[in-house]
Write a protein that binds this DNA or RNA. Structure first.
Lengths: 230, 230
DNA sequence: GCTTCGTAAATCCTATAGGAAACAGGATTC
DNA sequence: GAATCCTGTTTCCTATAGGATTTACGAAGC
C-alpha cells in the first residue's frame, strides 16, 4: 500500500485525508466518462476498488451529491446522474446566461495581470489542442474550455458567484462528454472565446459581458441544432 | 433506544436515515443561531449530543460543508463559518443582484396559480408577523422573507438557478441573524416585497425583475448604512 | 521570564463488524 | 399459468474500536 502521507522535510505534509483522494478520484472518473450516467455507484464496491474502507467513500459521495453529479436514494445508494434531457440542457444554458456574463463584466474590471496571462494561455491551449475523434484526443480541448470559463469566474472575485459557477461548470463538463456530439464547432468556439478575451484586453466590461452572452447563446444554438436525441 | 423506523400501516415508512435527521438538526441549529459563527463543531461531541455514532454526523457535515455554513480543515475538524465581513456582505449582495432578478423575470412568466397564492401568502405573513426585539419574536418574519425569495426561485422553474439561489439563501438567512441589526426596516422591506408581487400579478416580467433589483439594492443600502462594525 | 520539550487528553480519521433493508431467484399455491 | 411467498445474496447503514494527529498543560532548561 502506498503511503500518501510522506512528508518532505520541514514541509507540513499535504494535509489531505483519504476522503479527499476518494473525492478527487470519483470526480475525475465522472468527468472522464469512466462512470456512465445512470450507473450505480456502490459504496462497498468503490471502497474495494480504491482499497479503502467505506467510510471515506461515504464522505466523498455525500460531498459529490451536492454538485448534482450523483444522486442518492435513502437505503438504495448512489447513482450517477442521468444524461441531460433537452429540457435540462435548456435550463443549464439559461443559468449560464444569467451568471457568466456577470462574471465576465466583473472579471474585466478586477482582472489581475496574472489572471489575464492565464486567460491568454487558456485560449492559446484551445487553439493548439488536438481535436481528434476519441475522447483522449479532445480531452485537453475540453479542459482548456472549462478552464477559460473557470478563470473568469475566479477573477470576478466573488466567492458566491464562483461557487455558483463551479456547480454549473461540472454539469457543463459532463454535458460536453455525454450530451454533446464531440467537437464539431471548434473554430467558431475559439473565435468566440477570443472575442471575450479581446474585450477583456480592451478593458470594456460591458463588451466583455456582451461577448460572453454571445458565446453562450451560440453554444446553445449549435448544441440544439446538433441535438442527437429527443 | 427509540425506534425511528416504526411504520404506520400502509405507509411507506419515512425513508429517512439518521444522517438526514442529523443534517436537519444541524441546519436548524445553524439557522437558529444556536451554533454561533466560529464555534467548533466536534464530530464526536455532536454524536454524543444527538445520541448517534460519529458516522452519520460525518456524512451530514460533509453535505453541509458545500453550503458554506460550516468549514472543514483536514485533521482539525469543522467550524461554523465566521461572521460576514463587510466585503463578504457586498459579495453576497452582488451575487443576489445577478441571480434574483433573473429568477423574478422567469417566475413571472412561468408562475402557476398555486405558486402565486403561496407568494401572496408569504407577503401576507410578512405583514402580520410580530417584529419584537428577541429572536423568537421576529423569527417568523425572517422565515416569511426567506420563503418569499425561495418561492420565486422555485417558480423560475430552473433547477440550476434554484440550486444557486438555495446556496445563497442559507447565507442570507445566516446574515440576517448574525451580521444584521435585527429588524429595523420592516415597513420599507414589506413595501418592496409588495412591489415585486404586484409586478408579478400584472404579468410584466421586466418590471418584476426591476422591482427585485430595486429591493436587493435597497436592502444592501440599508444594511450598509446600519453596518455595526468595520 | 521565556522558550522548549514531553506527557496526557481530546479529537479526528480509518477500518471492521453486524444488523437491516433491498434485490433476485426459485418454489409453492391458487 | 400467474401471483405470492420464501430464501440467499448483496448492499446500505450504523456502531464500535483503535491508530494517528492535534492541542493543552506543565515541567525543565536557558
Amino acid at each position: 500500500m502506498p503511503d500518501p502521507s510522506v512528508a518532505r522535510a520541514g514541509f507540513p505534509v499535504s494535509r489531505q485525508v483519504l476522503a479527499d483522494h476518494v473525492y478527487e478520484a470519483l470526480l475525475e472518473w465522472l468527468m472522464d466518462g469512466r462512470l456512465e450516467p445512470g450507473a450505480a455507484v456502490s459504496i462497498d464496491g468503490m471502497a474495494r476498488d480504491l482499497d479503502v474502507s467505506p467510510t471515506p467513500v461515504r464522505e466523498a459521495l455525500a460531498r459529490l451529491e451536492h454538485t448534482g453529479m450523483v444522486r442518492r436514494v435513502a437505503l438504495k445508494g448512489y447513482r450517477v446522474a442521468p444524461v441531460f434531457t433537452r429540457e435540462d440542457f435548456a435550463e443549464l444554458m439559461e443559468a449560464r446566461l444569467s451568471i457568466e456574463p456577470v462574471n465576465a463584466r466583473l472579471a474585466c474590471s478586477r482582472m489581475t495581470p496574472d489572471g489575464l496571462d492565464a486567460l491568454k494561455q487558456a485560449v492559446e491551449d484551445l487553439k493548439t489542442a488536438p481535436r481528434g475523434g476519441t475522447f483522449a484526443e479532445y480531452r485537453s480541448y475540453l479542459e482548456a474550455d472549462e478552464r477559460f470559463h473557470q478563470l473568469i469566474a475566479a477573477q470576478a472575485n466573488n466567492q458566491f458567484l464562483l461557487a455558483a459557477y463551479n456547480t454549473l461548470g461540472g454539469q457543463i463538463q459532463r454535458f460536453r462528454l455525454f450530451g454533446g456530439v464531440g467537437i464539431t464547432d471548434a473554430e467558431q468556439a475559439i473565435a468566440e472565446h477570443q472575442a471575450v478575451l479581446d474585450a477583456m484586453l480592451s478593458g470594456d466590461p460591458e463588451k466583455a459581458a456582451q461577448m460572453m452572452i454571445d458565446h453562450v447563446e451560440k453554444v446553445r444554438g449549435r448544441a440544439m441544432a446538433d441535438a442527437p436525441e429527443d
